[in-house]
Amino acid sequence: MASLKDIKRRIGSVENTQKITSAMRMVAAAKLRRAQDAILAARPYAQKMYATLGEIGRRQKDAEHPLLQAHETETVMEVIVITSDRGLCGAFNGNAIKAADRAIKEKGSAFNEIVISTVGRKATEYYTKRQGVVRSWTGIASVGFHDAVEIANHLSERYNAGEIDHALIVYNEFVSAMTQKPNTDQLLPLSPAQEIADAGATDPIPFEIEPDAAGLLNVLVPQALEFSIYRALLENQAGEHAARMTAMESATRNTEDIIKSLTLKYNRARQAAITRELVEIVSGAEAL
């Protein structure tokens, strides 16, 4: 039987853990709110961009851009796997990595080579130990659009140079505070048909375009690629905080249970000690 002092010490240590987990839960909740705001803030831009892209595409049936065109032979695929930098967020990162491995396995037969780039320390650690990574981005404290631009530039350079022929992005989609769903999207060749359909109508797009529609496409198509990556980064960010919030909430609940059962144990031990002492006193008195 553990001594009274031991139990007391354990209760103290569990209480300290509880302070940490409940603080982490509150921090995650605050960060989640900010991450959700960032997702909402991106919407007007997305709508405008995809609506314009759709309209230009409709007007110019032969609209062409290197990032929209599939390469004749597809041999190399690059997969961008997005996870968080930190752990303590349940199965969040594990799910993204599992989804990435599944996508690699499924598509593996169609390509000669599959290379991986990662965002976030968890994916970087995982894939560096295995097949290695082409490039990794870590230490993004708060996602900015320039982070997405950097990744988009990396991909489009490689795509235009013919180093890669296909690109996927794997990330956790933020469905709600309780659920995050791992998603695999095709990035290159770019096919924004779905997003265009979702964008709906905005202002009528002017007929007069300067210098020409091709010039506009040169801006819009890279922007669409950048935005798909930005969206994935934002979803991952919100998902991470939501997952951590849930994980810390259940951790805090667990510490409560443990403290309750330890307190019970402590009280029993105390009772036993008192009873023992009484028995000793009584039997001592009887012996006299």
Binding site: T52, E208, I209, E210, G215, L216, V219
Partner: peptide
């Protein structure tokens, strides 16, 4: 800052679209 040089806009400008 348009791709073909800076341009100014006043109310009632011709309806058009351009890259920056």
């Amino acid at each position: 800052p348009g791709v073909e040089g800076d341009f100014g806009i006043l109310e009632g400008h011709e309806v058009f679209m351009t890259s920056l």
